[in-house]
Amino acid sequence: MVSTQTLIENNKDLYIQATQHPFLAQLGKAQIDPKALQSFLNQDRVFALGYCKWLAMIAARIPLLEQSSKPNTHDVDSLHLMSFAISNGLREVNMFPNTLASLNLEYRAVEANAACFDYVQYLYQLDNNDDAIVALWALEKVYLDGWGYAKSLDTSRSSPYSELLDNWTCEQFVHFVDTDLKAQVERIQSTDTRRFDDIFASICRLEIAFWEQSLLLQ
């Protein structure tokens, strides 16, 4: 069995760097350069598109009806989860232009920067669903906890970014990450913990690079 808590503990330093990055600290304190936030939101829309395609790749590999005419309950649950994640990802793709406009920032149909492109390409090369599910949980866990950290710094609750902070820490997202995806990971039957540690560490590094490039490309 794979322990999500052990994956975090084994990569604690990288996890903290990814979830308490200066980008998130500046955002939570409402000290972020608007150009950095604009860069992030435009790139995150590009990432969300690649993310949705990747989820479809995971769904296509679910072994539903491959070895039996009776649908496997776990396969059906997995398909439902991927469907939910794709639907939610596409909702966010459509949300970005309006979010940027509400913050007086410019929406741009940009190309993926180096950090975004490398991140998506890493996900695409995970051709085993156990590996992909660990990566999916890891990236959503880091994202959830990163936004949670930023929100914890918004002590006045008067930040112009409160809507963003609430969106990525909402109860539905918490349940998706800490209940649904966690259960998917912890049902994996494998003793190869080093392989999953490497995936978690890679996701943390890719998240750090994504935050970092948003600060650099102002």
Rank of each mutant, 00 (worst) to 15 (best):
V2S: 01
S3Q: 09
T4A: 08
Q5A: 14
L7C: 04
I8L: 12
K12N: 12
D13C: 02
D13W: 03
Q17D: 05
H21W: 00
H21D: 00
P22F: 00
L24M: 01
G28A: 02
K29H: 07
Q31P: 06
Q31N: 15
D33T: 09
A36F: 02
Q43R: 07
G50A: 09
Y51C: 04
L55R: 02
M57I: 09
I58P: 02
L64M: 15
E66G: 02
Q67S: 13
H74F: 12
D77W: 06
D77A: 13
S78P: 01
S78R: 06
L81H: 02
I86C: 01
R91W: 03
N94R: 11
M95G: 05
P97G: 08
L100C: 12
S102K: 14
E106L: 05
C116A: 14
F117Y: 12
F117T: 11
D118C: 05
Y124W: 02
D127C: 10
A138S: 14
L144N: 03
G146P: 01
K151D: 06
S152C: 08
D154W: 05
S156V: 08
Y161A: 01
L164P: 01
L165T: 04
N167Y: 06
Q172C: 12
T179R: 10
Q189D: 11
Q189W: 12
S190F: 02
R194K: 06
F196V: 11
I203L: 13
I203K: 10
I208K: 14
A209N: 10
F210T: 04
F210D: 03
W211G: 13
Q213V: 02
